Simulated scan of single mutants.
Amino acid sequence: MSTASSTEKDWTVISLLKTSADFLKQKGFSDARLTAELLLAHVLELQRVDLYVNFDRPVSPKELAQFRELFRRRLSGEPVQYILGQEEFFGLKFEVNPSVLIPRPETELLVEQIIDDFSGEAGAILDIGTGSGAIAITLAKLLPQTQLTAVDICRKALEVAERNAMRHGVEARIRFLCLDALQPDFVSHFTQPFDVVVSNPPYIPLSEKESVPPDVRNFEPHIALFTDTGFEFYEKIARDARQLLRSGGKLYFELHADAHPKVQALLEEHGFQHLMFKKDYQGFVRLVRAESPVSA
């Protein structure tokens, strides 16, 4: 699709969708049709399905200009979620911007597992590296008796998370703290033990940086993606969790696709028991649940 033209044609919803999707496909975008639908629905303030109900609706020059601006941003590689300013996670819509990672379907596995383990029970949960707040806020919505603490090193990320908490009406049950989980005194900021510690930490080693898709590598926050080895947070959180968790409390991690063996060794080294690993939709081991030893 040409993003500028000296002679404008009359565009309808269906003609603009087809032309823009074809152009994106030629440029190698695998999500060409979906991208075109999402961008045009956003401009026209319609649901995606309504685009086809209104397939012959004319697109005004103002709407076309707005669409072209969003289209240019996608052509540059910017993720659709940042362009639209939101992403869906566990059926809930979350504000996202370049200060936070875009929530992934794989991370929903963490939430599902915690809900399965604690459904109907009150408890205290610590979310380390909360980003947009997707994990903590979803748990607050679905476990209404739970009190949560959500921490992140990035103040701008916490501002997004706080807005998301207010959006979903759970801000009174989540305490947001700006803390660095790698600092030696991290544990000292908490006076009461938690029933759950959960983290989707930065876990991509810098050696893999160039293999990460460009729309992730060039737009999402590196502080939430990369570490020197990929294991710094697993090691530190596993060590701290022995003090952060009550006796018998549970630790949950999202895992790098090939981190399973080393994280298992780390957890066992720090005395965790009853390790349970779970695969994602692509067959990779993506989460682990481990239990803190029960005091005698």
Rank of each mutant, 00 (worst) to 15 (best):
S2D: 10
S2R: 14
S6E: 13
T7S: 14
D10G: 02
W11H: 11
I14T: 11
L16A: 08
K18N: 10
A21G: 11
A21C: 11
F23S: 14
K25Y: 02
K27R: 14
K27L: 02
D31P: 09
T35C: 09
L40E: 06
E45D: 13
Q47V: 09
R48N: 09
V49M: 12
D56P: 01
K62Y: 12
E63P: 02
Q66P: 04
F67R: 05
S76N: 02
G77N: 08
V80N: 03
I83Q: 06
G85H: 12
Q86E: 12
Q86S: 15
L110G: 11
S119I: 10
G123E: 01
A124E: 01
L126M: 13
A136N: 09
T138V: 07
T138M: 05
T146C: 13
T149C: 00
A157P: 02
R163T: 10
G169P: 08
V170I: 07
E171I: 02
R173S: 13
P184C: 06
Q192W: 01
Q192C: 04
D195L: 03
D195I: 03
V197A: 01
S211Q: 15
S211Y: 13
L225I: 15
G230C: 06
F233L: 03
I237A: 00
A241S: 15
L244Q: 03
S247C: 06
G249K: 10
P261F: 04
K262F: 05
L266A: 05
E269A: 04
Q273A: 11
L275Q: 09
R289Y: 03
R289K: 15
P293H: 00
